[in-house]
Design a protein around this nucleic acid. Structure first.
Length: 410
RNA sequence: GGGUCGGUGCCCGAGUGGUUAAUGGGGGUGGACUGUAAAUCCACUAGCUAUGCUUACGUUGGUUCGAAUCCAACCCGGCCCA
């Protein structure tokens, strides 16, 4: 295996610093490669092992997760080895970071399924193909083998006070909400992962600082050179307020279709635009369009291109414009709904719910009442409107609000 | 283990026997406006092929013409004591 390119070309480390919040330990003046990551990168004679863990707790990952993986990709491109840890063991305990509640425990099967799904979704982000650039490890490999004496050794390396100093714990303790003992194990296990894979660098969101630091402590305990921690920002979601998360519904999933992705991204809040460009693209930040609307479009196009390719992205942009303009016929990528599953005569409100635009028929009625339902661009006002047969409806487009469409087919 | 306080809708949080899916806020969805944004204003915010019916205030029973509200047991959590 060849030495990392960065070693031979003492080039710039822009890729390292773009969108990076913090690197620790960080002593920029130091020549010591254990105190200064840039020195380490320039001096290393072998690819560094760059760890990034993810707990397969759900089936979807989103752009918020992707920024750490993008950084990981940057390391890969610089010749280093990405060590992706699938937290199949830790997922069953749950990371207490940032949670106000205990995470529910998952079965082994769910975890397995989720893990595969994650890897599929990461395909466009990481380099899966270049030999030596990617290592995928499951932490059950070593964590399930820990015996009590080893666990005690880990536990003895930290104090309750140190644990309680951790952000989430402190809050929960002060709010008098429950903290279970097994949650204290989480940072230790994640830290032990670093020992198990002999990590040189670990990536994570800023909320992971504590956990990455524990990794350093444990590596020291096991006579390894402590890893560097590299923190990337937590991406704010599409609501512009809270961090991107599936449960808050303010996310853009990596596996979403191009049109959905585009539609969400093109309304990125103005004050998040710069951040999104920095974290989700490689575009130079000083040559963006002046008009905020154009910036939104460029961002959407760029990101969708990463996941779906330029052609599909361009088509999504076109479709999005057509849909909003109301020229329904021009939209090709509208989900279809087959009328074969409904019984005629069918009331409009039932149709709205059956087609999946609304969760329930009650909600559909309310939306119709509120003027949110359109058929071929025309507002539906009578919720008891009935259709006698499928021919009346097939080919027409049913719409809820500005964003949800369904084409009715026989 | 003992004492004590508490468990209400997506979230927070009122309500303490009597028309009512249950005040208020947040969030969400829809409408107007707009740049498909923000801000603002308005509406909606349990389910049902539905002018009515069915479920809802930790769980299960009980008292009552009638309970989220009273009683009992149980489950869960906080705090104090051990």
């Amino acid at each position: 295996m060849s030495a990392p390119t960065s070693a031979s070309t003492p080039a710039s480390f822009d890729w390292l610093h773009r969108g990076t919040t913090e690197i620790f330990p960080h002593q920029p003046e130091s020549e010591d490669p254990n105190q200064n990551l840039t020195q380490r990168l320039m001096q290393c004679d072998r690819p560094l092992r760059v760890k990034l863990g993810i707990d397969p707790t759900g089936t979807d990952i989103h752009l918020g997760h992707s920024i750490a993986f993008r950084k990981l990709r940057a390391f890969q491109d610089a010749g280093h080895t990405a060590v992706v840890i699938i937290g199949d063991f830790t997922a069953r305990i749950g990371d207490p970071t940032g949670k106000s509640e205990v995470r529910k425990q998952l079965t082994e099967e769910q975890v397995k399924h989720n893990a595969q799904s994650y890897l599929d979704q990461l395909r466009p982000v990481l380099d899966f193909d270049t030999p030596g650039r990617l290592e995928i490890r499951y932490n059950s490999e070593w964590l399930s083998k820990l015996d009590l004496s080893k666990i005690l050794e880990l536990l003895a390396s930290m104090t309750v006070g140190q644990m309680l100093a951790k952000e989430g714990f402190a809050e929960r303790f002060n709010q008098e909400s429950p903290i279970y003992l097994h949650e204290f194990l989480y940072p230790l296990m994640q830290g032990y992962d670093s020992v198990a894979v002999d990590a040189d660098v670990e990536l994570g969101g800023t909320d992971q600082k504590f956990n990455l630091a524990v990794g350093r402590d444990l590596q020291r305990l096991f006579n390894q050179t402590p890893q560097f921690g590299l923190l990337v920002p937590i991406l704010i979601g599409t609501d512009g307020i809270q961090k991107m998360s599936k449960s808050l519904g303010n996310y853009v999933g990596l596996s979403e279709d191009a049109l959905t992705m585009y539609s969400k991204l093109e309304k990125t809040p103005d004050d998040q635009l710069a951040t999104y460009f920095e974290l989700l693209t490689k575009l130079p930040l000083d040559s963006l369009p002046d008009n905020p609307r154009d910036r939104q479009k460029q961002l959407a196009l760029e990101v969708v291109t990463q996941f779906h390719g330029a052609d599909t992205a361009a088509q999504a942009q076109k479709d999005a414009q057509n849909l909003v303009a109301g020229s329904t016929g021009a939209a090709d990528n509208v989900p279809e709904f087959s009328l074969s599953s409904v019984e005629f005569p069918v009331p409009i409100f039932y149709l709205v719910s059956a087609s999946g635009l609304c969760k329930s028929s009650s909600e559909a009625r309310k939306q119709i009442k509120g003027g949110g339902v359109k058929l071929d661009g025309e507002k539906v006002t009578d919720m008891n409107l009935k259709f006698e047969q499928a021919e009346e409806l097939s080919g027409r487009i049913l719409q809820l609000g500005k964003k949800k469409f369904v084409r009715l087919i026989p």
